[in-house]
Write a protein that binds this DNA or RNA. Structure first.
Lengths: 219, 219
DNA sequence: GGCCGGATCAACCGATCGGTTGACTCCGGA
DNA sequence: TCCGGAGTCAACCGATCGGTTGATCCGGCC
């Protein structure tokens, strides 16, 4: 049993945790060391297991947590630990912002929840061996991105974008930001260029999808 | 064992199906009759089980299916069957549009996936007994609607709002919905009145906040 | 010192949006 | 049967937005 790959499950859905536990324990060579509902709990579990001399070979992490520390933050915190275990992301969404954020945070793999069990099993094994495991769809998405680098918005432009998303007019934004309407329009033009759109609502849609601004999916 | 409540699981995620199966079979008095990955498969399973004289007391249905018939459509199809089993929705999202659509389609309950196991168990039992089971959050949401005289948007208006949120222009919306630009504007005026705003971006902001539309999260 | 990018502002004009009025059809309830 | 709401469309006009050109200021960098 000590030869088993020991996994820490992190997901806020009890249903999903139960599913992963049932699925993983059925595989030979993989066992579930512990579970956590969010980022803080995951770090606490890692510390506890470490104190007991118990190994964790792979952290299987959801990105969306209803409450508590989110998956990206948790991932980077875990990667800062001494002898940090590899973090394998297992989530529902495949937006580029999610994936890039996770990769930047130090994730060593990115799988989607609708993946067949066998794919998940192989990803866990690969992660435990220090390799990278990407879902085919995710890999394709990353390929498309590196070829066309997304231009970054300036802090000022993001500020404006946030106000834009609340439904303010140019004049109202100008007042809130203590600048003239003309400046607002100048910023907007730059934002449109960088996001590849040609009107304000499309800018909000793209910005929300790329997670440049928080897109209401808070919960 | 024949006294058990027999459940048909419908979810496109193998992980979630495994989780529900593991969770439900641990409860006394509940067993899983069959599973399906999408709407068509669910109907097929129901027919198959019926042909074999096997009972299905509750259908546990996800709303979001990656491919194949979606949950709302599947729900209404199932409810059209002879001796139709109650359909309990178990999903991730709690937007107005989702809930209302599910209820209209004949769902007898609406639970969220992050609910604790005990809540899900009670919902299944309630559904099997012909009762309605709503997640507390969902119930509160519906209560908030009936108490506050919030003017309800028509289905058509919601459709338009969804396209609006993707950043389309009036003309583009008109093309997508096979109506004239004039009609789009008429609908917009009504939407603005009902939401208490005076421009499209504000409408999107309010609609997202009231969860009339989803701010984000396609799959 | 010179250069560049970010931020600021102005003036202008065409395109789109916001808002109104009026009108027609269809359908379901009183 | 009549009425009202939902949905459709048209014409019109003022307000706002989209896009351009050109300009100033400032801070960092070579």
């Amino acid at each position: 049993m000590t030869g088993d790959i020991r996994v820490l499950l992190v997901d806020d859905h009890p249903v999903v945790r139960a599913g992963l536990r049932a699925m993983l324990t059925e595989f030979d060579g993989i066992s579930v060391a512990a579970e956590a509902a969010h980022g803080e709990a995951a770090l606490k579990e890692l510390a506890r297991l470490h104190a007991h001399g118990e190994r964790v070979d792979v952290v299987l992490m959801d990105l969306q947590m209803g409450a508590g520390m989110d998956g990206v933050t948790a991932t980077s915190r875990i990667r800062l630990l001494d002898k940090a275990p590899p973090v394998l992301i297992l989530t529902t969404y495949d937006t580029d912002a999610d994936i890039l954020a996770a990769v930047e945070a130090g994730a060593s793999g990115y799988m989607l929840k609708d993946a067949p069990p066998e794919q998940i099993r192989q990803a866990v094994i690969a992660a435990a061996a220090g390799q990278t495991a990407l879902a085919p769809r995710v890999a394709a998405l990353l390929m498309g991105r590196i070829s066309s680098p997304a231009p970054a918005l300036t802090p000022r432009e993001v500020q404006l974008l946030e106000r834009l998303a609340t439904g303010l007019s140019n004049r109202a934004i100008a007042k809130e930001m203590f600048i003239s309407e003309a400046t607002v329009k100048t910023h907007l033009v730059h934002i449109y260029e960088k996001l590849g759109v040609d009107n304000r609502t499309a800018a909000i849609a793209v910005a929300a999808e790329r997670r440049i601004i928080r897109g209401r999916g808070s919960r």
